[in-house]
Amino acid sequence: MKDWVKILKAYHEGKFDRYFYGLTPRLIVGACQVPIGVPFENDIIAYNVTEKIFKEMRKYNKDGLIVSSNQCDIHKGPVMRFIEADWTESSIGTSFDKIWNRYSDEIIAGNFGISSYDRQILNTIF
């Protein structure tokens, strides 16, 4: 199972109970780094990894779960979560361009927004 799937399943199961609408793409991307939160070597790698995860999320349709996004007023951008619904081409509700335009500076800088609270949960997932 891919790491981002484990993270979104944990959110879906209520393990990230401080977050109400979903997890930021920057947190998901950073949590998928080995070790967790390690910055990317350069902006091209950051872009490619983020795009790969987004493409996988956009197509995900397993066990009755699909990836969907909500617009978060706190983060001023999309946040991601699993929902129980039928998959369509537009189920994810956002585009890679919107995610990259909002979160690219933070992802490239290695500012994934992973708090000590998040890290405790992530350590139980992996």
Rank of each mutant, 00 (worst) to 15 (best):
N48V: 02
K59H: 02
F16H: 08
D73P: 03
A10G: 10
V38D: 12
R81A: 14
V79Y: 00
K52E: 04
E84G: 04
K59W: 01
C72T: 11
M1P: 15
Q71I: 05
P25V: 09
D17P: 05
L23G: 04
I66F: 13
C72I: 07
K2M: 14
Y60V: 06
T50M: 01
Y60T: 03
T88W: 06
G113V: 07
F40K: 06
N48Y: 09
K52T: 13
G64D: 06
Y103P: 10
Q33D: 00
N70L: 07
V67P: 02
R81I: 03
T24A: 14
G37T: 08
Y21A: 13
N101H: 02
G77Y: 05
F40G: 06
D43Q: 12
Y103D: 05
M57S: 15
I83C: 07
I125M: 03
T124Y: 03
Q120N: 14
I107C: 00
W4A: 08
M80H: 04
E56C: 00
I114A: 05
K76C: 08
I99W: 00
T94R: 01
W100A: 02
A10R: 03
R81Y: 10
V29E: 00
W100Y: 07
E51Y: 07
G110W: 00
L122N: 09
V79T: 10
M80P: 04
L27E: 12
K15S: 11
I53D: 06
H75M: 07
G77K: 01
D43H: 02
D105W: 09
